[in-house]
């Protein structure tokens, strides 16, 4: 390749062959059967939103680290994890819109729903650093818990009667295994490293632990979608086993299981969120909402 020719190639921006890569992202679910299984469509759409919102909201939180990580390598890794989750969210929101059948695409669902219509768990939305609410240790504690739980959920979801959910899960598993491994390695390093890092990661675990119970509390939609959805109550022992193993390797003890109380029995899956969540959405959605009809 002659690099002097790169100047010429830049002049004609429409010739794909002149560029090292294309600008679009390949359709990751190309060839997957998109038929909707014989279940209640509103329930299936809501379930896709639950999974999609978990991924979207945590991606938004992790991207806050961009240019703020303790090492350049970690900037790359956290951006990578955020991108994986964003990719999962896009497939899941697209599926939610498709099943709903009201013409909403991934952007309509991400940008034009209000707080009460988001179905993600609180663990995804709480602030765990780099800003208020935590630090790198808290971020890794949250990521360890979230990815261990998601991995257990997706490994069952591979057998879902919804072919799209099964395909998203199969693809996401490899990514989540890397996320969990990354978080586990950091929790071990921090637990074992210095007195300060031990204290900080311990505080991080205490920060996220009250949000564990919600992960394993089934929502009526999940229970009605037997064969399509995963019953989260079934995941508890597997996730506990993973967490205990990592904490033992890190020289950390498991925080007390004192679940955060719900609001009239409701939590994230019902659209009842933490105070921090409104700010997250305000920031994420404002530009899209400011320019109705714009093309991006």
């Amino acid at each position: 390749m002659s690099f002097d020719n790169a100047y010429e190639s830049l002049i004609d921006g429409h010739e794909d062959a002149h560029w090292a890569f294309g600008t679009g992202f390949a359709e990751p679910l190309a060839g997957v059967d998109r038929e909707v299984p014989d279940v209640d469509r509103a329930d299936l759409a809501a379930y896709c939103l639950m999974l999609g919102d978990d991924a979207l909201v945590l991606s938004q939180r992790l991207a806050e680290w961009c240019s703020r990580a303790p090492e350049l390598e970690e900037d790359v890794a956290l951006a990578n994890i955020a991108l994986d989750l964003l990719g999962q969210a896009r497939m899941l929101l697209t599926r939610a819109g498709e099943v709903e059948g009201a013409g909403r695409d991934e952007d309509a669902l991400a940008y034009l729903r209000d707080e009460r219509d988001f179905r993600n768990v609180h663990l995804a939305e709480i602030e765990c650093g780099p800003f208020a609410g935590g630090d790198f240790g808290t971020t890794m504690a949250r990521l360890l818990v979230f990815s261990s739980w998601k991995l257990a959920q997706y490994s069952r979801l591979r057998a879902s009667a919804d072919p799209v959910l099964a395909a998203v899960a199969a693809k996401g598993l490899k990514e989540l295994a890397y996320h969990r491994d990354h978080a586990a390695q950091w929790v071990v390093r921090l637990g074992d490293g210095t007195e300060e890092s031990h204290r900080r990661v311990r505080a991080g675990l205490e920060r996220v632990w009250p949000f564990l119970a919600e992960l394993f509390t089934p929502h009526a939609v999940e229970l009605r979608l037997a064969g399509v959805a995963v019953d989260p109550a079934e995941l508890r022992s597997e996730v506990d086993g993973v967490l205990d193993e990592v904490l033992a390797a890190a020289g950390l003890t498991r925080p007390a299981d004192v679940p955060a109380a719900r609001v009239n029995g409701l939590a994230g899956r019902d659209g009842v969120h933490t105070e921090a969540f409104g700010y997250l959405l305000a920031e994420m959605q404002h530009l899209h909402r400011s320019l109705p009809g714009a093309k991006w």
Binding site: L72, E73, A79, L83, L86, A89, W296
Partner: peptide, 25 residues
């Protein structure tokens, strides 16, 4: 990144900023 107006643009921008960290490395 946090305000990108579509999910596709958010992915493109995040990947770009990640590339910059890689170039620095």
């Amino acid at each position: 990144i946090s305000r990108a107006p579509s999910l596709r643009r958010k992915a493109i921008l995040l990947a770009k900023v990640q590339d910059e960290a890689g170039h620095g490395l």
